[in-house]
Design a protein around this nucleic acid. Sequence first.
DNA 1: TATGAATGAGGCTTCATTCAT
DNA 2: AATGAATGAAGCCTCATTCAT
Lengths: 210, 210, 210, 210
Amino acid sequence: MRPNKREIILKAAEKLFRERRIHELTMEDVAQAAGVGKGTIYNHFENKDDLLFQIATHGFEELCALVAATPKKDKFHARLAALCEQISEFFQQRRAVMRMIHEHEGRLGHLKETMKERWLENRRKLAGAVASILSQGVAEGAVRRDLPCDFLATLLLGMLGARDHDFSHAPGKRPPVEMLVGVFLEGAGVIGGMNGARVSGGENNFGETS
Amino acid sequence: MRPNKREIILKAAEKLFRERRIHELTMEDVAQAAGVGKGTIYNHFENKDDLLFQIATHGFEELCALVAATPKKDKFHARLAALCEQISEFFQQRRAVMRMIHEHEGRLGHLKETMKERWLENRRKLAGAVASILSQGVAEGAVRRDLPCDFLATLLLGMLGARDHDFSHAPGKRPPVEMLVGVFLEGAGVIGGMNGARVSGGENNFGETS
Amino acid sequence: MRPNKREIILKAAEKLFRERRIHELTMEDVAQAAGVGKGTIYNHFENKDDLLFQIATHGFEELCALVAATPKKDKFHARLAALCEQISEFFQQRRAVMRMIHEHEGRLGHLKETMKERWLENRRKLAGAVASILSQGVAEGAVRRDLPCDFLATLLLGMLGARDHDFSHAPGKRPPVEMLVGVFLEGAGVIGGMNGARVSGGENNFGETS
Amino acid sequence: MRPNKREIILKAAEKLFRERRIHELTMEDVAQAAGVGKGTIYNHFENKDDLLFQIATHGFEELCALVAATPKKDKFHARLAALCEQISEFFQQRRAVMRMIHEHEGRLGHLKETMKERWLENRRKLAGAVASILSQGVAEGAVRRDLPCDFLATLLLGMLGARDHDFSHAPGKRPPVEMLVGVFLEGAGVIGGMNGARVSGGENNFGETS
DNA sequence: TATGAATGAGGCTTCATTCAT
DNA sequence: AATGAATGAAGCCTCATTCAT
């Protein structure tokens, strides 16, 4: 019983989300999944909002750790792609948690000031982690330096989220991360006259599988 | 009493969302806001899910109409920026509705097949509208033709959403749309050797203090 | 439109009951079935209670008329059996209405005095009709005269109702009316020593069908 | 708090019925009467239908126990009368519950298969209990053996129910059980020539009291 | 007289939270 | 510390009844 009951509950709740039992998580569900009594949860979390908040935070922290641990691959482009792949995979697994986070941000007003602070700080952490990768790119001369990395990180994460979301119903058709990173670094526009040939074969439909 | 009571209820509910009274919309609230009896709502909408679904659909349709009506400005770059500005503004106003849509997609399983179909179709409409603008860019030689416009549209919308979301608490600090469009068209990377000078003044923090 | 809209509504409601759509008759249902607007019902019936009351009354009156019209068959025994057959059949068709009547008697307190009176009077009518048949039997020396016919009628109707009810799920196994009338007239007991032989074949199981 | 809260709720609900507060039992009423919270009921009963079903079953079981416990009095006739008296009294007390049972049978379709089975089984139990008493009569040579006891039991119960029902408004005028049993055993008809004298004083009006 | 959209009281049920054990 | 039965506020929805057309 060492892994701290708090941890057990947290894991169980996260798992519930991952298992698509989204609809509306009840404390009963969480207790059952964690194999503890309903009352026990209240010995470790102030109330349901607190629990959700902790889950979300927990998720972000994991993700941040993941990002920070990105191996310093050789080429920046490859490094960025690997990072995106990781983030994307994480999002895939946590779709429900992320949705919950979204949904929950609307209620931030109900949370106590301290929590609110900690929460927004957490939100910045992810973008920060990605931004720090990008700033490596700047140092290496691979990323434009006329824009703040924070902003670029935000945009990159936005792209990733949109891709994952739009193709969630048919992962087979989802364009590869490389393509996304390509657009991010090279842009969607035509610069000078050589851009039309970026990809050898002209129009691309990223091989329909299913 | 001409504007169809259905319309009245819809508007009222949307307004409720916009007025940040999000937490959890109750049918009571909606009725009150619409100035009708609780039962009246059920004469026009099957149940709460149906109402939410209709609101979401309604929102998307408005947005699609907006996009489709984008004036054919001179330069493609300017045209795209104007479009993004419109979409962004729409999102600002509809944050809550959009959140609700997100939150709701998880429950799509509960909706009847027909609704589900109509819903996913709606989702595609927006991307489609943006994509059609982009394809104009392709025709004009302003957008790379090696990637499907649908995908590019998804990425652009993702960027927009992320920007709006990340800076929702401090709209003053929000980077201008032009900057976003710039990244989208030119990329975040350094191409050749001249990219470092894209913006004259080097590092940029887009002023705005608080 | 001559058959009086009142009559139309009444018939439609009765039919609804007969069609087993019991659960809980709504005014909407009745209106639909009668092919009239909901409001129209209120031009002919004070309220739902009144409507139900009228249906019940209507049913009783039909039944009373049926009983009164029993042909003066030759033998009293046969006459009584024919009568019972009719009543039973009527009950079969009106199970739902009868249940509703039962259920409704509990609410008599809510009905205005006049209605209450008329209702109880109606209740007596049926027993009265049967009693009058029985009194013919008394006159003919076929029915014992030491007990009031009203009472005997009550008992006979009780037997009939119980039979119909108990075998409603398997009408094929329902003992024939003759047998019931036999018990009613001759009794279930053994009188003197000859009763054991009333029915020739000893133990009887009235031919199991299913 | 030993008598099981489930039991408490059941008793309270039954009592409510007995106290004529029929109209329409609300869960609120039941909770109040049982002195528990509304939610508590749902910890012991699946929903309202289930509660009603349990009440009905409970009532039948009590009655069956009562019947089975009928003392083996000396004379069969007296024994039967005592039994009928008991059943009648029970019915008096449970009029409302019984009405509810009636009313409820119409909805049996909505109940799950298991319940349906258990219910019909319960229904048979009562008739069975009475039938077993009657079969004692057969053994003693007091009841005709040419008819199945089940059927006779049904008829007897029907008579009882009808008597109780018809005279519920004026219990004082209700004919004594002995008279009913008399009709049941000896029949309402005239057998041979001596029947007219069964009761010494000719026409009988069972002394008007109230 | 006929209609049916509008109404809102009232019912059933859920579920976060408490507290006695 | 752990439990889960008890609680009741709050939400969704139904449906008898009204009333403007």
